[in-house]
Computed example of a mutant assay.
Amino acid sequence: MKKNSFLFSAKGILIAGVLSLNTVMYAQKTADISTISEKTLSSILEKNRTYYAQGKVADYIPELGKMDAKAIAFSVVDKNGKVFNSGDVQKKFTMQSISKIIALMVAVNEKGEANVFDKMGYFGSDRPFNHFSNLETTGKPLNPMMNAGAILTTSLISGDGEKPFLKILDMVRYITKNSTIDYSKSVYESEKSTGHRNRGMFYLMKNNGLISGNEDQLDNYFKQCSIELTAEDLAKIGYFFANQCVRYDGNSTYKNAEIAKLIESQMLTAGMYEFSGEYSRTVGLPSKSGVGGGITVSVPGKMGIGVFSPALDQHGNSLAGYHMILDLVKQYNLSIF
């Protein structure tokens, strides 16, 4: 063997050895996701329980302000559809903005992606969820995750009266395999009586020719936001979109890889309001929050996560919920990046 060949061979062996060592060290730092258990969740939950004291329960909708700030729950549905729970998993809360991803799925299934996004953008969010953004300039909502885009999305679902809302409710019941899920009439009435800003968006879009119906369509939006569920239900929703719209029990009635990609991409770029960019850096997973205190998370191809804690940060995201997700992501290296 020539001297140079020997040197290159030795160098190759050295590099391979270093890479192997790094792989081993990396594996040691990263836990196997098959080891996730209720004990894991309980440990993370207890570590982050006190974050509620630094947040604030949403009260701009009076009924939401009645929620117990100390309530907290953590749920995971693993790759095999097995459910792990910790905390106040029986505690119900309203979906609020999390309902937007379900409405988007229903609208796109009916009208097609091109027809829906002809009326709104794919843009990320850098403004609060209830911002008018460019409605008054270009006339179109930034994306379907902000209130304006979500109101428009729901108005695109076919059917008179509350039929569009019932389609959204039925889809939530199907995905979670929970037929008892319904909406809170008291929260709905509270949202309707105080939702003047959303009403302004509705009429601005109606003025721009994007919406042709009446306030029944806006009522459907208020109702979908008022759907009540649990952290476990949110984990099942996260699982559904993480696995090409296949339900946690393997039911593939709505299997559609493209719809799943669309929903997950919207969750990643705009699902956490104006915190979405920073959240993508820290957590790196498609997620959707709601001011009711819930967050649903999709770990693509792997699992779904659901958290609940009603005390919110300045962006409208669950404070303890975010930190629970962040700890789980770090422990199991779940970020897609």
Rank of each mutant, 00 (worst) to 15 (best):
Met1Arg: 12
Ser9Met: 10
Ala10Tyr: 06
Lys11His: 00
Asn22Pro: 00
Ala27Val: 08
Lys29Ile: 10
Ser34Trp: 00
Ile36Gln: 04
Lys39Pro: 00
Leu41Asp: 04
Leu45Ile: 07
Lys47Arg: 14
Thr50Tyr: 13
Ala53His: 11
Gln54Thr: 11
Gly55Leu: 02
Leu64Gln: 06
Met67Gly: 02
Ala69Met: 12
Ala69Lys: 15
Ile72Glu: 06
Val76Thr: 05
Gly81Arg: 03
Val83Lys: 08
Thr94Asn: 13
Met95Tyr: 08
Ser97Ile: 01
Ile98Val: 14
Ser99Ile: 02
Lys100Ser: 08
Ala107Lys: 01
Val108Cys: 07
Glu110Ser: 07
Lys119His: 13
Met120Phe: 09
Tyr122Val: 10
Asn143Arg: 10
Gly149Asp: 04
Ile157Lys: 02
Ser158Tyr: 04
Gly159Met: 11
Gly161Ser: 13
Glu162Tyr: 13
Lys163Trp: 01
Lys163Tyr: 12
Phe165Ser: 07
Leu166Asp: 13
Ile168Gly: 06
Leu169Ala: 12
Met171Ser: 14
Val172Leu: 11
Arg173Glu: 05
Thr176Tyr: 00
Lys177Glu: 14
Asp182Arg: 13
Tyr183Cys: 06
Tyr183Phe: 15
Ser190His: 07
Phe202His: 09
Leu204Arg: 11
Asn208Gly: 02
Ile211His: 08
Ile211Gly: 05
Glu215His: 11
Asp216Ala: 09
Leu218Ile: 08
Leu218Trp: 01
Asp219Val: 12
Asn220Leu: 10
Gln224Asn: 07
Gln224Val: 06
Leu229Gln: 05
Leu229Val: 10
Thr230His: 00
Ala231Arg: 01
Glu232Pro: 02
Leu234Asp: 09
Phe240Leu: 04
Ala242Glu: 04
Gly250Pro: 12
Ser252Asp: 15
Tyr254Trp: 11
Ala260Arg: 03
Ser265Glu: 13
Leu268Lys: 08
Met272Lys: 08
Ser276Leu: 03
Arg281Gly: 04
Leu285Val: 03
Gly294Ile: 00
Ile295Ser: 09
Gly306Cys: 07
Phe308Cys: 08
Gly316Gln: 02
Asn317Lys: 05
Asp327Trp: 04
Ser335Asp: 11
Ile336Gly: 06
